[in-house]
Design a protein around this nucleic acid. Structure first.
Length: 308
RNA sequence: GCCGAGAUAGCUCAGUGGUAGAGCGCGGCCCUGAAAAGGCCGGCGUGGGGGGUCCGAUUCCCUCUCUCGGCA
C-alpha cells in the first residue's frame, strides 16, 4: 500500500509560517490543519494572528476559529479533531499540511499521547485546594511516595505537572510514569515530513516587535476589550495580549507598557518554541533571510518534498 | 571658565581596601489532557584612561577625558 503523506511546517511565532504554508499548499493539493492552541478560538482573530478569511479562501484551513473563547481546550481534544480531519483528507486524496507553533500539539500528533486518562474535575479541585493551603512541597512529597519515577522528572515547584501526575494516579491507581510509556504515534503507514522555519534571533525578534505594532493597528485594543466581557476559559485567556492589556484597562500601567510587555512575552515564547523544536532531529530546517518571500521559501521546501 | 555630582554588566543602579552584585534585558533547558501555559538554570564585567599610596585598589590620593546639574 502506498504511504500516506503528512507534512508539518513549524517555527517560532512571527516568522511567517502561515503565508508560506498557503504558497506551499497551492503547489501540492493540500489542505492546512492549524497546529496552534490559540488560533482555535473565535473572536480572537487579531490577538492570535489568524490569517484573514480572504487569505484562507483558496486553500482550505482547519481548526482555526472553531471554538468559543469560553470553552476550554487541550492537547487530547486537538489530537482527536486533527486526526479526524486527516482521515477525511486522505479519503479525498489530499495531503494534510500541519502548520503551527504549539510544540505539544505537534508532538501529540506525531508521537502520540498515552491512553485516555481525562481530567477529573473533582480530583482537580481537591488538589488545587491543597496546593493553596499546604503548598507545592506537600503535593510533591505525596507524589514522591506514590510515583517516584514521575517525581524524579518533575521539579518540586512545577505544581501543574505534580497535580496532573497525582490526578492520574488517584483516578486510575496506575502511575503516570507507567502510562507514559505507552505512547502511540503515527505508524509506518505514514510518510511524515517535518520542516522548521528559522532565522537569526535578531530577525525573529524584529519581526515579532513589528507584528505586535501591526496588531495594534488592526484593532487589538477593541478586540481584547470585547473579549474581557466574557468569562474566558482558562485556556483562552492565556493568549499573549489578553493579560497584558487587562493590566492597562485596569489602570495598572500605560498603553506603551502593555505593548512592551506583549512584545517581550512574545519574544520569550518564540525562544521557548525554538528550544522545544531544536531537540527534534527529524526536523529539516529552512533558514530564512531578510527579503525572502513566502513563495521563495515555499519553493525551497517543495524541492525537499518527494511525494511519490 | 568656575563650582558641585557622577563614570561599575546590554540598560538603570547598589556595594566593598582582599579583583563585584540587584532589577530589567539576554542566553540555555525541561515539557504527555491549561502548552501563547507552567517550571528550572546561567552574570554575560579590561569596575572611563594614566599615575601614586599600600603586601594588595573597583574602593584612598593626584591627573586627564567624558556626562549631568548650577553659576557665569
Amino acid at each position: 500500500m502506498q504511504k500516506k503523506n503528512i507534512i508539518f511546517l513549524l517555527g517560532p511565532t512571527g516568522i511567517g509560517k502561515s503565508s508560506v504554508a498557503v504558497s506551499l499548499a497551492k503547489k501540492i493539493k493540500a489542505e492546512i490543519i492549524s497546529c496552534d492552541s490559540m488560533q482555535v478560538y473565535r473572536k480572537m482573530e487579531v490577538v492570535t494572528c489568524q490569517l484573514k478569511p480572504r487569505e484562507r479562501k483558496v486553500i482550505k484551513h482547519h481548526l482555526i476559529g472553531v471554538l468559543k473563547p469560553q470553552q476550554e481546550y487541550n492537547a487530547a481534544r486537538y489530537r482527536r479533531q486533527a486526526l479526524a480531519i486527516c482521515d477525511q483528507l486522505f479519503t479525498q486524496g489530499k495531503i494534510p499540511l500541519f502548520v503551527g507553533g504549539t510544540g505539544l500539539y505537534y508532538s501529540v500528533i506525531i508521537d502520540g499521547l498515552f491512553p485516555a486518562v481525562p481530567q477529573d474535575k473533582l480530583i482537580r479541585v481537591k488538589l488545587e485546594k491543597q496546593l493553596k493551603t499546604r503548598g507545592s512541597q506537600y503535593l510533591y512529597r505525596r507524589l514522591s511516595q506514590l510515583d517516584s519515577q514521575a517525581a524524579a522528572r518533575i521539579h518540586p515547584h512545577d505544581s501543574r505537572r505534580i497535580i496532573r501526575a497525582l490526578e492520574v494516579y488517584l483516578k486510575t491507581g496506575t502511575r503516570i510514569s507507567q502510562l507514559q510509556k505507552n505512547r502511540v504515534g503515527l505508524n509506518k503507514d505514514y510518510k511524515v515530513r517535518i520542516f522548521g522555519l528559522n532565522a537569526n534571533r535578531a530577525m525573529i525578534y524584529n519581526a515579532i516587535d513589528r507584528r505586535v505594532d501591526q496588531m495594534f493597528n488592526q484593532g487589538l485594543l477593541k478586540e481584547v476589550k470585547a473579549l474581557l466581557k466574557y468569562k474566558l476559559s482558562r485556556t483562552a485567556k492565556c493568549a499573549i495580549g489578553i493579560r497584558e492589556l487587562k493590566g492597562y484597562f485596569d489602570g495598572k500601567y500605560s498603553l506603551d507598557e502593555a505593548r512592551r510587555l506583549i512584545q517581550r512575552n512574545s519574544r520569550h515564547y518564540a525562544k521557548r518554541q525554538l528550544t522545544w523544536f531544536r531537540k527534534d532531529k527529524r526536523i529539516r530546517w529552512i533558514n530564512i533571510k531578510v527579503g525572502d518571500s513566502p513563495v521563495t521559501v515555499a519553493k525551497r521546501i517543495f524541492k525537499f518534498l518527494d511525494l511519490s
